Computed example of a mutant assay.
Amino acid sequence: MNMRKVVALPLIAIAVFILEGISSLLFSQAFFGEQRLFIPHFLIVMLVLMATFYNRNITLIYAFVLGMVFDIYYTGILGIYFAIFPLVVYLTDKFMKVLQNNIALVGLVVVFNVILTESLVYGFYVLIGVTDMTLSSFVDQRLWTTILLNLAFFLIAFFPFRSFLLKLKQSDGK
């Protein structure tokens, strides 16, 4: 039995889940002030890296589970992230079959998936009447800072997490 797969990967997922919540509470006001919002999507970054450097099917399981837990814990509306996280994994898998998996292209896939996630959530919230933020306000006050934050997290996490996933994949014998 592979202890990295059984223990370390779930612990990393839990740590990233907690880090995402803590970072939104601790750093939002300090870095961007009250007029700018940032939404950490560290789980999206983690799932993109897993889909790129590890097993797609296992990553899909993580996406469904993390999406459900995220919806229950953070949003209160079941189904938004439960649908978006697996979509991100699926799209990443399709992109990476065509693209090389170097840091620049994986970073672009991360940015694309963060934009997709934010746009889908914004569109859904507008549709059900939860927000009245205009599209220009959304892009100006929320989207750009969210992209920058998640890109910074990607740059910090890329090399250590990629190394971990490649070792895990190698130990699985694939």
Rank of each mutant, 00 (worst) to 15 (best):
Q35R: 14
I77K: 10
D172P: 02
T75N: 03
V89H: 08
F27T: 03
L78A: 11
V109C: 11
I12C: 07
M1R: 15
M1L: 13
A30N: 03
S137Q: 09
R36D: 00
S171A: 15
P40W: 03
L49Y: 06
S137F: 05
F161C: 06
F53Y: 13
K174H: 10
I61C: 05
N102C: 00
F27P: 01
L99Y: 13
A30M: 06
L99H: 07
Q100Y: 15
L78V: 12
K97R: 15
S23K: 10
G76T: 07
I61F: 07
F70E: 00
Y125S: 06
Y54R: 01
G107A: 12
V98I: 14
A15L: 13
L168N: 09
K94Q: 14
I147Q: 01
G173L: 12
S163W: 08
F82T: 14
Y74V: 06
L165Y: 07
I44V: 15
R56V: 14
V16H: 12
T131K: 07
L11Q: 08
G173N: 11
P10D: 01
F85G: 07
Q29V: 08
I128T: 14
G123A: 10
D140I: 11
R56E: 09
V48L: 00
I14E: 01
L166N: 11
L151S: 13
L116C: 04
I147V: 12
L166E: 12
K97F: 07
I80S: 02
T131H: 04
L43E: 04
N101T: 15
P160G: 10
L19M: 12
G79H: 09
F159D: 11
L116I: 09
V139I: 12
L120R: 08
N101M: 07
I18H: 03
V69S: 02
V109G: 06
L11N: 10
N55E: 13
L47Y: 03
R162F: 02
I103Q: 12
L60I: 05
F164S: 03
A15K: 09
L120Y: 05
K5F: 11
W144Q: 06
G21A: 01
I61D: 01
R4T: 05
L166M: 11
K97H: 13
I22T: 13
R162K: 15
I58F: 10
N55R: 15
N55C: 08
V139K: 01
L105S: 09
N55W: 11
V98H: 11
H41A: 04
D140W: 10
Q141G: 03
F153V: 12
R36L: 12
D172F: 09
Y54T: 02
G129A: 08
M3V: 13
L37M: 10
K169G: 00
M96R: 14
I80E: 03
E118H: 09
L9C: 10
A15G: 08
Y74W: 12
Y62E: 02
F38T: 03
V109I: 14
L143W: 01
V69K: 00
N102Q: 08
G123K: 09
I103S: 07
F32W: 13
S23V: 14
K5E: 11
T131P: 01
I18R: 04
V88K: 05
T117M: 10
F82L: 15
A104C: 03
L166H: 05
D93R: 14
